[in-house]
Design a protein around this nucleic acid. Structure first.
Length: 437
RNA sequence: GUGAAUGUAGCUCAGUUGGUUAGAGCACUAGGUUGUGGUCCUAGGGGUCGCGGGUUCGAAUCCCGUCAUUCACCCCA
């Protein structure tokens, strides 16, 4: 009886595994380049950890279970609560600022579709313990630098940036009551996906005054530098409100200094769904046929203290292997990852096969990736195998090898071939081959 | 959770108005070109036509159900 894999999960055959590893290596490399160190936590957590702060949306899609003592657990659906828990537990002992990254395997009981599966890998970058908007800007910079390293340009992906503090100040200014904030946040967040009429209709259902609705419509359209100017003028006379705009402008100034301004744009339509964001919020948005968020993040200033730690602000973002792959596929930027070997050793005659094994043994012992054919067959066939195996060089052992102690070495890319003494090969397996053919 | 589309070999698909042993390309395996490669040639393995039921002399093809996948909504990585 055949049993299919679980819905929304993937089997990583060597080809897919190579791509996944390539992506994770990229994440690791970029993280280190920007001065982040790696951490990890358990793959399941107490269910309460997510009940506290992630919001209903996340909780409704948890895979959860009980142990034999009736304790409730959930497979981690996101990493930030674990990070906050770990930081809260040792807050005073950890050197600040905390600059951590992780690439955890996560699970969410969602209905799978493009860019969204039930099991995936997510790259998380977080800076904790820095209140300055420098940290916000640096997180965004890391995200952009990652995309840039994949040869993605602003034509492929842009960072849309906003601040919940600014939004909150605006809403406060037009006297939106606290109990309606969440609803209004949600409405603004999907402004981009709706027509102007549909947006007005959503607002119409929310029991707001005419004036409030007009203000929200004006807000919802604010984008780019002019949009930010308009927002600032809407806050005229509100000193603390204007301060939030000044902070947001600082973020943009830092991003310009880091040299990634062309990737970044102000956008009132970005509010983000997670409940714990308090300040800067941002998302990378795929252009072309993708048209979806490919990374997302923001500032969470209360999460650590809510988990019993000291009052510590944090900011971070995440992206997943699934959307990164979709993004690269969309623009045909996926790498070609073929299996390779440094050397493929061939016998010109079955009688010297023992010497093949001997040479393979010596090369591998020297740290060289060496392969050979299991079957004794013609030289042509063995070369064919060497080629499909991705061998860079082929070493041919001739029938008179015992006497000459010399091999024919061929470079597969250039076709150059040379006669090299065994001792010289072992001494330096990657020597330049004489160019005479 | 709501709505829609699709389900033929490992992959991409053909399969005429329902008619005999269901095909192609790629991939895979073996062999040939008789001592130097990713070309070419030949052969081979592999399919309960998603599954179950119905209509019919006869169903991959029509009908119903079911499952799965994909897309959109919601939300999100």
């Amino acid at each position: 009886m055949k049993i299919a894999g679980p819905k929304g999960t993937r089997d990583f055959y060597p080809e897919q595994m190579a791509l996944r590893n390539w992506i994770v290596q990229r994440w690791t490399e970029i993280s280190r380049r920007h001065g982040f160190v790696e951490y990890d936590g358990p793959i399941f957590e107490r269910l309460d950890l997510y009940r506290i702060k992630s919001g209903d949306e996340i909780v409704s899609q948890l895979f959860h279970f009980e142990d034999r003592g009736g304790r409730e657990f959930a497979i981690r659906p996101e990493m930030t609560p674990t990070l906050a828990r770990m930081v809260a537990a040792k807050a005073n002992a950890l050197p600040k600022p905390i600059r951590w990254f992780s690439a955890p395997r996560l699970c969410r009981a969602e209905k799978p579709q493009r860019g969204r599966l039930r099991e995936f890998f997510q790259w998380n970058i977080d800076i904790v313990g820095v209140e300055s908007e420098l940290a916000d800007a640096e997180c965004i910079f890391v995200a952009v630098d990652f995309f840039r390293s994949l040869e993605l340009t602003p034509e492929h992906v842009v960072m849309r940036i906003n601040s919940r503090a600014v939004v909150a100040a605006l809403l406060h200014n037009i006297a939106i009551p606290d109990d309606k904030l969440t609803g209004v946040f949600a409405a603004l967040d999907k402004r981009d996906k709706l027509s102007a009429e549909a947006f007005a209709e959503v607002l119409g259902e929310m029991d707001l005054s005419e004036k409030q609705r007009e203000a929200l419509i004006a807000m919802g359209e604010a984008k780019g530098p002019e949009g930010l100017d308009r927002i600032e003028s809407m806050l005229a006379g509100d000193e603390s409100g204007q301060a939030t705009v000044t902070q947001l402008r600082q973020v943009f100034a830092h991003l310009a200094a880091f040299g990634v301004a062309e990737y970044c744009a102000y956008d009132m339509g970005v509010v983000r769904g997670l409940a714990y964001y308090t300040g800067t919020v941002f998302e990378g948005f795929g252009q072309g046929g993708l048209q979806r968020a490919v990374c997302g993040g923001g500032r969470y200033d209360e999460l650590v203290s809510q988990l019993g730690g000291p009052s510590m602000g944090g900011v971070g973002f995440a992206t997943s292997d699934v959307v990164v792959e979709d993004l690269l596929a969309e623009f045909e930027l996926l790498p070609e990852l073929k299996a390779t070997a440094d050397y493929f050793v061939i016998d010109a005659d079955a009688s010297v096969f023992p010497q093949v094994l001997e040479l393979v043994g010596r090369l591998r012992h020297a740290g060289v990736d060496a392969a050979f054919s299991y079957q004794r067959q013609g030289v042509g066939k063995q070369f064919k195998q060497a080629a499909s195996r991705g061998a860079r060089r082929v070493a041919v052992i001739e029938p008179d090898f015992a006497r000459t102690q010399t091999l024919n070495i061929k470079d597969m890319a250039s076709g150059t071939q040379a006669s090299i003494p065994l001792a010289a090969l072992i001494d330096d397996p990657f020597m330049e081959l004489p160019t005479t053919s």
